[in-house]
Write a protein that binds this DNA or RNA. Sequence first.
RNA 1: GCCCGAGUGGCGGAAUGGCAGACGCGACGGACUCAAAAUCCGUUGUCCGAAAGGGCAUGUGGGUUCGACUCCCACCUCGGGCACCA
Length: 946
Amino acid sequence: MDATGPPSPVTDAPPFRYTGALAQVIEARWHDRWDADGTFDTPNPAGPVGDAAAVGGRPKKFILDMFPYPSGSGLHMGHPLGYTATDIYARYQRMTGHNVLYTMGFDAFGLPAEQFAVQTGQHPAITTNQNIANIRTQLRRLGLSHDLRRSISTTDPGYYRWTQWIFLQIFNSWFDPELKEARRIDELIAEFEAGARRPTSGHWAAMSTADRRRELDGWRLAYVSDAPVNWCPGLGTVVANEEVTADGRSDRGNFPVFKRNMRQWMMRITTYADRLIDDLELLDWSDAIKAMQRNWIGRSEGATVHFDVSLVGDASPQPAGRITVFTTRPDTLFGATFMVLAPEHPLVDQLTTADRADAVAAYRRTTEAKKDFDRQDEGREKTGVFTGSYATNPLNGANIPVWIADYVLMGYGTGAIMAVPCGDQRDFEFARKFGLDIVAIQQPPDRTLDTATWADAFVGDAPYANSANDSLDLGGVATVAEGTHLTNEWLMAHDHGEATITYKLRDWLFSRQRYWGEPFPIVYDGDDNPHSLPDSMLPVMLPETDQFAPRTFDPDDAMSNPESPLDRLGEWVHVELDLGDGAQLYHRDTNVMPQWAGSCWYELRYLDPTNENDFVDPANEQYWMGPRTPGASGGVDLYVGGVEHAVLHLLYARFWHKVLFDLGHVSSKEPFHRLFNQGYILAAAFHDERGMYVEASEVQGRDGAYTHEGVSVSREYGKMGKSLKNAVDPDEMCNLYGADTLRLYLMSMGPLDASRPWESKDVVGVHRFLQRVWRNIVDEDTGEPRLLAEPAGAETVRLLHHTIAGVRAELDNLRFNTAIAKLIEFNNHLTKLGGCPADMADPLVKMVAPLAPHAAEELWAKLGHSETITYEPFPVADPAMLVADEVEYPVQINGKVRSHILVAAGAPHDAVQALALADHKVQAALAGSTPKKVIVIPGRMVNIVA
RNA sequence: GCCCGAGUGGCGGAAUGGCAGACGCGACGGACUCAAAAUCCGUUGUCCGAAAGGGCAUGUGGGUUCGACUCCCACCUCGGGCACCA
């Protein structure tokens, strides 16, 4: 590749020139100093690291990174990108008087550590700790101003004790549909006992203990369910919907995933669907991420409609029954000319007539053979079979055939649809293929009502036709919204349906058959009823074993069954406990929690990392997270991380936080008030003729042609990483230039939220900048300060204040690239003066400090200061210095700049106009003609309309 | 198909509706050097021109405006997300 080498070993360079080598000496010195002094320790209002006096009246800022998974290959360049941004912001906030909470933890449970452990035979705890130690070293090297006392790892029993505790909070809660919030299960029991609420079936007083237990389990926010889940034999575990790719494979390992009914833990996240959507309004997140979350939750308003149908099943002759469908267009019900059920719909057996039995069975076999993702291949020709049964259209009494087809999915809505071929393209195609009726119920512009002439379905507002019965007439209705409203009222009044909202979001599958995760704080009695363990028995420690490999299967063996590694540990599984009814035998839950569990609440533990009595002291939570104004969300002030967590971590964490809020454990409605998604780092990647990637750093480039070991290769750009073999190691960059240069380069590449291509040859630009700042202040031969004795002139002072105002504005808005550009401009000006005037040095170094903290600390010390620069006040621009005595106005004629005039600042409109018209270039351009109009924008420009 | 976002020099990028191209890389010229690297100074959108100066330029086509990279409409291209979602 075109990577330039290091600034080559300098033999005759001045001894105190700012080189990569000197930078590393300086940086190591300040890392030690910061550690020794506890420079970045941040006081809490309460608890072990509490110091109310130190907190004082300062405003707070909680600045958070998405914590890393401690991979064996260490940090990749995307980590320093986000971490540098938050560090700069944190340092800037400290210099503007804020009490800043900024630290880093490790999301250390999960599949890769376990898979590595299986490969090497080493316990995952050992490799995890080694990796964490390695990454700590890397983070330290970057000069990140973390409060190290607050660091956590999700694998630490002192941490996962509280993950288990929060799980039990959720387990022992239910969602009150009227109040739309979680409440303690005790309160539900009290409501049942008082008769204030009726159980789903029966009367509480008359129910057996077992029935009561079942009833309560049906309300819990965490529950065991025997529902269809994603079973991945290749991984040997079930996985969440969010972990299955669009083509039906596991996002880790890329194995096939099968829908199977299995007994698993679920979390009732669906009860929070509306709040998860509505509260997005309170958040300072990008529209893109908000849209992704809304899209994933998939709220869809419409109606359920019940169709009477004759059931022909042979079990017991059923005179009549009902098929319930969901539709977003109840107003088109008059046009429903047939119905379609998903092939696996439970009513299909009963609906299939004897003469259709063979055809239906054959069709169901073909669809079963296909995996979910094959069925979602859009554009595929529609397939389906008639069941032999008919339903009645409730609006017009029409007898309409009931079909089954795989374009209807069991997993959405009710698994059945009313087909309105005139108004739905899929139904239209199906009707055309199988010769079913298509009745127009709207009069589209440019079409006749004869649907035989239609090429496709019509969707939109248009006058209704064929849409009236004795009690409902859509004749005069103009819009879909109004038609929907009227139809819904009719359905309600005639007991044929009601307005309904459905969601794409499913409940969260929360158990995994792995070893390296949090054990469930749950035991089962002899009847397999789950019991929560009391807080005093937490943490449930992950048992020691050397058999941590999960049982995996042939990736295509859909009928295999999961076997958790913990199942094998009989001595751990079977326990005698006294849970209040005397000592009894129980067996433990042998699942572990998914990797997302630990990251659902880690920001809260940072607030109070060593608290043994509570997951966080409420006083600390209120101080750091609490809403500052009534109705606000509260939460972390700035959360920076990659967009890849848009619907996984960010949805799960919001859900847990909301439960904790409802139960009164936190004062903030949302965990992350402001979210900023950094862009990806891209880099050139090279592949040979076979499409195999080659190590990008070994590629030679000449005249736009590239070779690797003599073989011609092609260039492309892609996300920097191992898979494209184009990774650049942060440590390597630190070795070449020092951490400050790497930080500046990462920040100067472009806006933080944009993806940007890494170009190693460009790094030298910001390195030269630091070198010039250094040289303007320090003598390269002696290492002593060499400031210009004479004070800065008016122009320099004015530029300084412009720079201060600009840099502040850029840092406030995370626009680090332009902040750096403004500093370079100011420093270039000083360079032209021949050095830094004595009165310019302090403000310059302070402005550099958040961006390049090590160099700034060193310069600050050389300028005679003994304290760290960390808490020095950031320079403030003098407004008086921002206005010039004279302003240069561009003078446009018809929008094109023709001349410039110098005008005293604050000159009146007429004077500016007169000066502009008197300008000789303007005179020449006007050539004697009289301007039609002259526009003067004060302080900006003049435009003459000729 | 739907939902986000982006198209500006050779490259990364900068511009509250007000002088397009800040800042950096690269390139070119020069200084230092025996030489090279490193460093420093200068030039650098493009076309015409010796110069002064002028023409053309922010994906394409329209529009609003005294004035548009910026706002509106349509389209094209690229990136990201979702998708037989009823």
